[in-house]
Simulated scan of single mutants.
Amino acid sequence: MEYQAALEQFYKKLGKKKIMALATSLNDHVTVRNVSCLIYDKRLFFKTDKEFRKTKQLIANPNVAICHWGVQMEGTAVNHGLVIDEPEQKFQTLYEKYWKTSYTAYPHRDTEILIEVVPRFVEIWDQDENDRGFQLMIDFDQQTAEKIDYD
């Protein structure tokens, strides 16, 4: 499969928002928890308190994995600083739109940071229109994609 077509399928599958399971690791201790993600400009973001354990883990070891349903992504966590300092406030605007309850409960705190997960490798498990299973492997570093039929 062509790399650009695979990327389009990947971002279409993610949509605009997802609750995703984020795995972090520090000193060979792996933890996982759900985070409320926003996907825009072909990038994946979530916010978290800079004092949380997951934040300390991903700052010390930015290698993370994140998944939802059949989409599994390995990547690097990038800290973009305080959410309230983001130019244009795009994240905050979309967060209010899609996660209103959370936005209202934790608005504009000066401890919330914006984290981007930059993908390195994605594995998608899916089915085609005939219900035949397949895996779609996307390597962002090599800019390659491969569709593998699954029996």
Score class of each variant (00 low, 15 high):
Arg132Ala: 04
Phe10Pro: 00
Val122His: 12
Asp41Ala: 14
Asp149Leu: 09
Tyr103Leu: 03
Thr101Cys: 00
Leu114Asp: 10
Asp28Phe: 12
Leu7Trp: 11
Thr104Met: 12
Leu22Ser: 08
His80Cys: 07
Ile84Met: 14
Pro119Gly: 09
Ala5Thr: 12
Leu58Thr: 07
Phe134Gly: 06
Glu51Val: 09
Val35Ile: 13
Tyr95Glu: 11
Glu86Asp: 10
Glu74Val: 07
Val30Gly: 02
Glu86Ile: 07
Val83Lys: 08
Trp99Lys: 03
Leu7Met: 13
Tyr103Phe: 15
Asp126Val: 03
Lys42Thr: 08
Tyr11Ile: 04
Tyr11Asp: 05
His29Met: 08
Gln142Ala: 15
Met1Cys: 11
Phe46Tyr: 14
Gln143Cys: 01
Gln72Lys: 02
Glu129Asn: 12
Leu14Lys: 05
Ile148Val: 15
Gln135Val: 05
Ile66Ala: 05
Gln9Met: 08
His80Asn: 06
Leu82Tyr: 15
His29Gly: 00
Thr24Gln: 01
Tyr98Cys: 03
Lys97Trp: 00
Pro62Thr: 09
Lys56Gly: 07
Thr31Ile: 13
Val71Glu: 02
Ile138Gly: 04
Gln135Ala: 13
Thr76Asp: 06
Lys56Leu: 14
Lys97His: 10
Leu26Arg: 08
Pro119Ser: 04
Phe46Leu: 03
Ala145Asp: 00
Leu7Thr: 12
Leu58Ala: 06
Phe10Asn: 02
Asp28Cys: 07
Arg43Phe: 04
Phe91Ile: 02
Lys100Trp: 03
Asp139Thr: 01
Leu82Asn: 12
Ala77Gln: 06
Leu38Phe: 10
Arg109Pro: 03
Leu44Tyr: 05
Asn61Val: 05
Lys100Asn: 10
Ile84Thr: 15
Asp28Trp: 11
Phe134Thr: 03
Ile115Arg: 02
Pro62Glu: 06
Ile124His: 11
Arg53Gly: 00
Gln127Trp: 07
Thr55Asn: 08
Gln142Phe: 00
Arg33Gly: 12
Asp41Val: 03
Arg109Lys: 11
His108Glu: 13
Thr31Gly: 03
Lys16Trp: 01
Trp69Gly: 02
Asp149Arg: 06
Met73Lys: 00
Lys17Arg: 13
Trp125Gln: 06
Val122Asn: 07
Ala6Ile: 04
Ile59His: 01
Leu22Ile: 03
